[in-house]
Amino acid sequence: MSTTAAGPTALAERALGPDLARGVMLLFIALANSHYFLRGSSILGGYPQDASPLDSAVTWLLATFVVGMADGLLFFAGDILAMYGVLLLLGAWVVFWKDRWLLVLALLVFVMTALPSADYASAIADPPDSAMLPPDVGTMLSERTGAVGFVALLGPIGFACPFLIGLVAGRHRVLEQPERHRILLTVTAVVGLGVSVLGAQPIALVLSGARPLPGSETLELIGPLHDATGVLGGFGYAALITLIAHRIGARRGAVINALAATGQRSMTCYLVQSVVWAIVFTPFLLDLSATLTVASTALLATGTWLVTVVLADRMRRTGQRGPFEVLVRRVTYRQPRRATL
Rank of each mutant, 00 (worst) to 15 (best):
M140E: 11
R252M: 12
H181P: 01
T218R: 08
H246N: 15
L341K: 14
V276C: 04
R338A: 14
I124T: 12
A70H: 15
R330Y: 09
E13R: 13
F163H: 09
R173V: 11
G91Y: 10
D19S: 13
L62D: 00
L164C: 01
G234I: 09
A189G: 08
T229S: 12
G223N: 02
D287S: 06
L292Y: 00
S296W: 07
L311T: 09
L31T: 05
L107V: 12
A30S: 14
A260Y: 10
T293R: 08
D19F: 01
T9N: 02
I222D: 01
A204G: 02
T297S: 02
A5P: 01
G199H: 08
N33W: 04
I241V: 14
V104G: 15
A123H: 10
V272D: 01
G199C: 04
A106Q: 02
R211S: 13
E217T: 12
T262S: 10
G230S: 07
L27R: 06
E176I: 08
P212N: 05
M112S: 15
P116T: 04
A57K: 05
S117I: 13
S56T: 13
S34C: 13
L81W: 12
A15M: 03
Y84S: 12
R251F: 07
L89G: 10
H181V: 12
V67P: 02
L311V: 15
V275G: 09
F324Y: 12
L219F: 09
G149Q: 07
T262L: 06
A147P: 03
G319F: 07
P48H: 00
G149C: 07
L133K: 02
S216V: 09
V24A: 12
V195T: 10
R265S: 11
G249P: 04
R247F: 08
A169C: 09
M267V: 15
L259R: 06
L141I: 01
D55Y: 08
